[in-house]
């Protein structure tokens, strides 16, 4: 089982950022990816997360070719890939309380309330969010606290793959180690395939099973 980009070319309105790039993450492994600023790592993550359609090439999930971006594929496919971005603020709806931010993907796939509440409580505990934080909105918490909420949200459907794009760059050492530990635990329990994009060679050496450098 793996999530793979095959010969992907992608970019933004006339600017080609990825050219014939191939990259894969297998179930149960943690792959590190590093490379200079602007080399297209984030674009690769967006393509693998089905957030950005490639101009050429394709993405396959467990051997099945996926065509179309996130909102056009079935919920069953969409929920198998979780993403965690560098800036939790840019990625979060400012109107939602943290509890709802975490729960929202469950609403979208129609889960019972009791189940949702229990799942949010369980994940909040795992990522280290105290009860008083769950009732606040994004502007009332720090970036690190918001990133913990985004991690809980990314795990809410227990994705088969988790893509982290510089996701711990803005976190302090202890929160970074904690986020890495939560992700590693998720991986041990459920065989999640994890991609960690980071500029930090020391972090990747410590966290990833193998590291690719672009």
């Amino acid at each position: 089982m793996s999530l793979v980009a095959h010969g992907v070319t992608a970019g933004y309105r006339g600017l080609t950022v990825l050219r014939d790039a191939s990259f894969g993450v297998a179930a149960g492994e943690t792959v590190g990816l590093r490379g200079p600023s602007g080399c297209g790592k984030s674009t690769l993550v967006r393509v693998l997360a089905l957030l950005h359609a490639p101009d050429a090439g394709h993405v396959s999930l467990g051997g099945v070719v996926v065509s179309g971006v996130r909102h056009r594929v079935s919920a069953a496919l969409r929920t198998r890939v979780g993403v965690l971005f560098q800036s939790p603020r840019a990625a979060s709806d400012p109107r939602l309380r943290l509890a709802d931010l975490i729960a929202e993907p469950l609403h979208a796939t129609g889960h019972a309330r009791a189940h949702t509440r229990a799942r949010v409580a369980e994940l909040a505990d795992r990522v280290g969010l105290t009860a008083d934080l769950l009732t606040r909105r994004p502007h009332e918490v720090s970036d690190g606290q918001l990133q913990r909420a985004c991690l809980a949200r990314a795990l809410v459907h227990r994705p088969a793959y988790l893509l982290c794009d510089e996701a711990t760059t803005m976190l302090d050492a202890s929160t970074q180690a904690h986020v890495a530990a939560v992700i590693a635990q998720e991986q041990r329990r459920h065989g999640t395939g994890v991609l960690v994009v980071s500029h930090d060679a020391v972090l990747l050496d410590r966290w990833a099973d193998r590291v690719e450098t672009w």
Partner: peptide, 24 residues
């Protein structure tokens, strides 16, 4: 000392527990 220990080139161990709530 605990914060330095959390660095990936040190122990990479998070500080146990959580910071207190600033509301209490």
């Amino acid at each position: 000392a605990a914060l330095l220990d959390a660095l990936p080139n040190w122990a990479f161990t998070p500080i146990p527990g959580h910071p207190p709530m600033l509301t209490a």
